[in-house]
Computed example of a mutant assay.
Amino acid sequence: MKSDFYWINEPQHWQQSGTALSVTTDAKTDFWSQTWYGFKRFSGHFYGCEVIGDFTFQVKVKADFSALYDQAGIMLMTDEDHWLKAGIEFNDGSPAIGSVLTLEHSDWATGHFPASADVFWMRITRKADSLRLQYSTDGKSWPLLRLAYFPASEKCRVGVMCCTPERAGLVVKFEDFLLTGALDKELHDLS
C-alpha cells in the first residue's frame, strides 16, 4: 500500500498490516448532501491518496453488513461537495450494490447484489471528465455499475470508505489495493 494514503475522518480503531487495512466504524458516520433528507454529512471514514490525471483504482472488500445503511467500498472526491462513493450498502433487509454521486447534491442508485456480499471487489476508472464504476463478485468479471460525468480537475483523492449512519462497529477489511494508469478498455469489456 502506498505510504501517501491518509485519513479523512480517521476512525478510533483501525490497523494496517502489509497491504491490508482493517477498520471498525465509529457511530453515526456517513457521506450525504441534501437530497430527500435535507441534511449534509461528511463524517464517514475515507482512506485515500491524491491522484493527478486519468487512473484506475480497485480494491477487495470484506465485511459483515447487518444494520441499516452499513456501507463500505471506494470513494473519489475533489472536495466536500464533489464526490462519488460506491460499494455495498445494507438497506431493505439485505446488502445492495450501489453508488452515490454528489455534485453539491447527492443522488443514490442502488440495486440487487447477485452474490454473497461478505467479499466483493470495486473498481473506478477516471478518464478526463468521465467515471467508469465497476464491481466484481469474483475478482475476474467486472460488470459496469455506473458511467457518470464528474467535473475534470487537476487532482482529486481516491481510496476506500466505510460508514455506519445508524450504529458503530462494522468491521471492514480492505485488501489488494491497486492504483494504475487508466484502463482504457471498451465499455462492455468485463475483464
Score class of each variant (00 low, 15 high):
residue 2 K to H: 15
residue 3 S to L: 13
residue 7 W to D: 11
residue 7 W to C: 11
residue 8 I to G: 00
residue 13 H to Y: 07
residue 16 Q to R: 01
residue 17 S to C: 11
residue 18 G to R: 10
residue 19 T to K: 13
residue 21 L to D: 09
residue 25 T to V: 07
residue 25 T to F: 08
residue 27 A to E: 12
residue 28 K to L: 08
residue 36 W to I: 15
residue 40 K to F: 03
residue 43 S to I: 08
residue 44 G to K: 04
residue 45 H to S: 04
residue 49 C to L: 02
residue 49 C to F: 07
residue 56 T to V: 01
residue 57 F to K: 07
residue 58 Q to M: 07
residue 59 V to H: 08
residue 64 D to E: 13
residue 65 F to D: 06
residue 66 S to V: 10
residue 67 A to N: 10
residue 75 M to V: 05
residue 80 E to R: 14
residue 82 H to K: 03
residue 83 W to Y: 11
residue 83 W to V: 05
residue 85 K to F: 11
residue 85 K to V: 10
residue 88 I to H: 02
residue 94 S to N: 12
residue 97 I to S: 05
residue 97 I to V: 11
residue 100 V to M: 12
residue 102 T to M: 00
residue 103 L to T: 12
residue 107 D to W: 11
residue 116 S to E: 14
residue 125 T to P: 01
residue 130 S to V: 13
residue 134 Q to C: 12
residue 137 T to L: 07
residue 139 G to C: 09
residue 141 S to H: 12
residue 141 S to I: 13
residue 142 W to T: 05
residue 142 W to L: 00
residue 148 A to D: 14
residue 154 E to M: 12
residue 172 V to R: 00
residue 172 V to D: 00
residue 174 F to A: 01
residue 174 F to I: 00
residue 178 L to N: 02
residue 180 T to D: 01
residue 184 D to V: 03
residue 186 E to M: 08
residue 186 E to W: 12
residue 188 H to D: 13
residue 189 D to M: 11
residue 191 S to N: 14
